[in-house]
């Protein structure tokens, strides 16, 4: 069954794309297999306008106030925040590790840049993730084509501009195929 796509309300400011918020939380002690990952990830809701975005976002906990092993994902409507999704499987992500205390501000700046189409890379952006971990937090932005160096360079330069990060911040690009290999390498039978 195909879900009805959301539309902007009367007088609202439409976004270039519709987006969906997702939330996931790792159950301690469980292996992170694809199946359990998909079971742990919950849709919060979709929006089509600036005003609808604020209605969701204003009621959400700020990433810096989350505890445990949790993630917020914001992806274009129709793209699952998983490597296996058709839009992601040839793609990759820029990863920025943040010391504790920076996640809420960086996440907000990142998603506002994405919703406002600040990256200027056509259809390439898939979504963004903030991952709250024990000692540090991680934000990432996913794009469709990992091999397109012009696109990945442009995303990196836009990230530097919109996040206003300390100059020594390390940014790392990781293809999803590498992420899959790495995670398989940690399984006992691989």
């Amino acid at each position: 069954t195909k879900k009805k796509m959301v539309v902007p309300g009367a007088g609202e400011h439409p976004l270039q794309y519709n987006y969906t918020f997702w939330y996931s939380r790792r159950t301690p002690g469980r292996p992170a297999s694809t199946q359990s990952y998909e079971q742990n990830i919950k849709q919060i809701g979709s929006f089509a306008s600036v005003e609808q975005f604020w209605r969701f976002y204003s009621h959400m906990i700020r990433p810096g106030d989350l505890t445990g092993h949790s993630d917020f994902h914001l992806f274009k409507e129709g793209i699952k925040p998983m490597w296996e999704d058709d839009a992601n499987k040839m793609g990759g992500k820029w990863i920025i590790r943040l010391r504790k205390g920076l996640a809420s501000r960086c996440w907000e700046n990142l998603i506002l840049a994405m919703l406002g189409e600040q990256f200027m890379v056509g259809e390439e952006i898939c979504g963004a993730v903030v991952s709250v971990r024990f000692q540090e937090d991680i934000i990432s932005i996913w794009n469709k084509t990992a091999s397109d160096q012009g696109t990945t360079a442009r995303i990196r330069d836009t990230l530097r501009r919109v996040l206003n990060l300390p100059p020594n911040t390390i940014m790392e690009y990781k293809t999803h195929t590498d992420s899959i290999k790495y995670s398989l390498g940690r399984l006992p039978w691989a």
Binding site: E12, Q16, F53, N109, A113, L115, E117
Partner: peptide, 21 residues
């Protein structure tokens, strides 16, 4: 077609607009 581009300030200004409440 044209892309819908918004800067950070424009988006933040919509945060408290009556229509968003």
């Amino acid at each position: 077609g044209t892309r819908i581009i918004y800067d950070r300030k424009f988006l933040l200004d919509r945060r408290n607009s009556p229509i968003a409440q």
